[in-house]
């Protein structure tokens, strides 16, 4: 498991294996423009708050392009939860930083939020002058239904590596326990993640 930037890993790999081999390994080339484009699309087309956006980014950056590992996702997702402010923006800043450095971090945050911010101002003006359009409301409902499916797919991707006889206790204890603490006892994500990190640090690898 390593957290060095994907760009430096990619450069090292090119040096060792040559460009042709690299092309087989990399799903798509990682450039500042292509990275920013992913954040632009995922950040401004996903409804339902930060978690669906982070899941869309995980899928686009990790599963589809191979730029972002599950371990990197876990680290940035967790730290974004404990960073003050808007979690998803901290996630964008951290994820882009790990992949391409600080310039990408700034580009990712701006690309993932500026168009939506402009839209929010426009919606503010519209809401002040008119009631909500029922057709538009139904369209958004369709998108939100897809968000539920998207989050289910993300849960599948996150738990899949543990689908073994030795991995099940971890899923039950950590995923199930988190759900229980959150839904039944109302623990905050911060408290739950601190407890999970403590348990994980003490739990021997299966």
């Amino acid at each position: 498991m390593e957290y060095a930037s994907s760009r430096s890993r990619r450069t090292d790999r090119r040096r060792i294996t040559g460009g042709a081999a690299l092309d087989k390994l990399a799903v798509r080339p990682l450039t500042l423009a292509s990275l920013t484009n992913v954040f632009l699309k995922a950040g401004n087309t996903t409804f339902g708050g930060g978690d669906p956006t982070m899941m869309a980014l995980k899928r686009e950056l990790g599963e589809r392009r191979g730029w972002f590992s599950d371990e990197q996702f876990a680290l940035v997702f967790s730290l974004a939860r404990i960073t003050p402010g808007t979690n998803v923006l901290a996630f964008c800043a951290g994820a882009a930083y790990l992949m391409y450095g600080w310039l990408a971090s700034v580009a990712a945050v701006v690309a993932s939020s500026a168009p939506s911010a402009v839209l929010a101002v426009w919606l503010t003006v519209v809401f002040e002058s008119a009631d909500r359009n029922p057709v538009a409301k139904m369209t958004v409902s369709g998108v939100l239904a897809a968000v539920v499916g998207m989050m289910g797919a993300a849960v599948w991707q996150l738990t899949k590596p543990n689908f073994s006889s030795k991995g099940w206790p971890r899923i039950v204890a950590l995923t199930g326990g988190t759900l229980l603490l959150r839904e039944v006892w109302g623990w905050s994500p911060l408290e739950i993640m601190a407890l999970a990190a403590g348990i994980g640090a003490m739990w021997r690898e299966p």
Binding site: L174, T178, A196
Partner: peptide
């Protein structure tokens, strides 16, 4: 180990986040 645990905990938090959206939307 902590990060691996956080990954599974994140899955639980996601289910928790999806529940209210699902109740309101589905």
């Amino acid at each position: 180990g902590a990060i691996r645990a956080l990954l599974l905990s994140a899955a639980g938090l996601l289910i928790s986040s999806a529940l209210p959206i699902g109740r309101a939307t589905l």
